[in-house]
């Protein structure tokens, strides 16, 4: 039996926008199996990013249950959620979100430093991961000295270097041109195929959807098709 890395049951999330309730997610049931490359698709406001955020522990649902690698997210406090994100989830953000004062290698090492991995192992793993993404030559550069595509590769290196059980990517191609997006998607697919990384991405880019092994479409906070 395939194990669910992510399991959502009856998840709802409602925001208050000027006292008007906005139902971002409505009673969503959803699961991701280990080794899958799933794309959450849909127009703006469909709830795909919200679903990604509640799964990643960046937001809390109003109702429903979410487990990530068997852990009930609702039962975790802020610090425990931080530990879950640190040890089990890799994030790739739309705006790269690298730490501007650290070099590419230091950015990749950052999460390992938080995990308490020793310097020698950190260095080896960071350089090895950057090398596998074709970024070794830029290891000493800071984010401000790299292109958007290069920064996104560093962000991916940072996300996968600790071998998380789940890689969450929120609109990873939003700030990239078509050529760079293609390279990025090839990279994600390779990671999924060769290293078995479970990937869940939220996107409205058809190119990204095409690379996923499963597409989940949302509209008005509900899953409309899989």
């Amino acid at each position: 039996m395939t194990q669910h890395v992510v399991e959502c049951q009856g998840v709802s999330r409602t925001y208050q926008d000027d006292a008007v309730p906005v139902h971002a997610l409505r009673d969503v049931d959803f699961a991701v199996d280990s080794g899958e490359f799933v794309s959450l698709a849909g127009p703006s406001g469909s709830g795909k990013s919200t679903l990604l955020h509640v799964i990643g522990g960046l937001d809390r649902p109003n109702a429903g249950a979410i487990t990530v690698d068997g852990e009930d997210i609702n039962a975790l406090g802020d610090s425990e959620l931080a530990d879950l994100r640190l040890n089990k989830i890799g994030f790739v953000f739309q705006a790269y979100n690298l730490i501007p004062v650290l070099s590419a290698q230091e950015n990749v090492e950052f999460i390992m430093q938080l995990q308490g991995i020793d310097a020698a192992e950190r260095g080896d793993r960071a350089l090895g991961t950057l090398d596998s993404l074709g970024m070794r030559d830029l290891a000493d550069r800071r984010p401000g000295e790299m292109s958007g595509g290069q920064q996104q590769r560093v962000a991916i290196a940072r996300a996968i270097v600790t071998n998380p059980v789940l890689l969450l990517a929120d609109e990873p191609s939003a700030n990239l041109d078509t050529g760079t997006t293609g390279e990025l998607l090839e990279l994600l697919k390779r990671l999924n195929k060769e290293r078995g990384v479970t990937i869940l991405t939220a996107t409205h880019d058809p190119m990204v959807m095409g690379y996923a092994s499963r597409q989940v479409h949302l509209r008005d906070g509900e899953i409309v098709s899989e």
């Binding site: 990643g56 960046l58 802020d78 610090s79 931080a82 530990d83 994100r85 640190l86 040890n87 994030f91 953000f93 979100n97 730490i99 501007p100 950052f110 999460i111 938080l114 940072r158």
Partner: peptide
Amino acid sequence: ELGMLRALGMRPRS
């Protein structure tokens, strides 16, 4: 930036 650090797993006290 501080929010991003927390998203990556930095605890609030850090």
